[in-house]
Amino acid sequence: MINYVWFGLLFIGILVSLFTGNVQVVTDAAIDNAKTAVELSLGLIGVMALWLGMMRVAEEAGLVKKLSRALRPALVKLFPDIPPEHPALGSIMMNIAANVFGLGDAATPFGLRAMKDLQTLNTTDDTATDSMCMFLALNTSSVTLVPASVIAYRVAAGSANAVEIIGPAIFATTISTTVAIIAAKLLSKSRKHRATKPDMVVTNSVKEGGN
């Protein structure tokens, strides 16, 4: 599906620009965004190193394990395929916590680390597990309690009450997260997706923080 979406964006964009004679903007957009992608990724190295370093300290101190134990009942329901002591639960929890509190910078390193941890449970190289799909559905539905950047933009635009949108936004994000969970659960049970489900690695004991 991602192939069609990607091609569709390019195809429609270029076709429309040919019709409107706006061809130069396409060239500029393609070149500029290619550069931006690299700048973004390289700019991420420092932040990634900072948060992954901190996470390692928290892991070795047993802090991650402690926190994910507290959330285990919810995590086990959402991710039944992950063994209870697996480090993936810790990084998933850190990612969700960073999102909830609007620490977007920290959320990405934890999220990518969670994917890496989840991949260690995957017996295939290229097919997403149910846990990955659930994790991404949760992530894209945005579990943010305080949309800090939106509030900042509203303040900058001279809003009389910049934070009045928090309540409605929490309502909307609760709905979208609920739908994400239900959709991921239902889709994972459909015959089509059960047929493509990768086997999970069977683990008896998992070393804390190991990879």
Binding site: M1, I2, V5, L112, M115, K116, L118, Q119, D125, D126, T127, A128, M132, C133, M134, L136, A137, T140, S141, A180, A183, A184, L187, S188, S190, H193, T196, K197
Partner: peptide, 14 residues
């Protein structure tokens, strides 16, 4: 980041 090519139903759910 983990070279997954078949996303299965992740996009639909999202």
């Amino acid at each position: 980041s983990v070279s997954i090519k078949k996303g299965r139903y992740a996009l639909t759910a999202g």
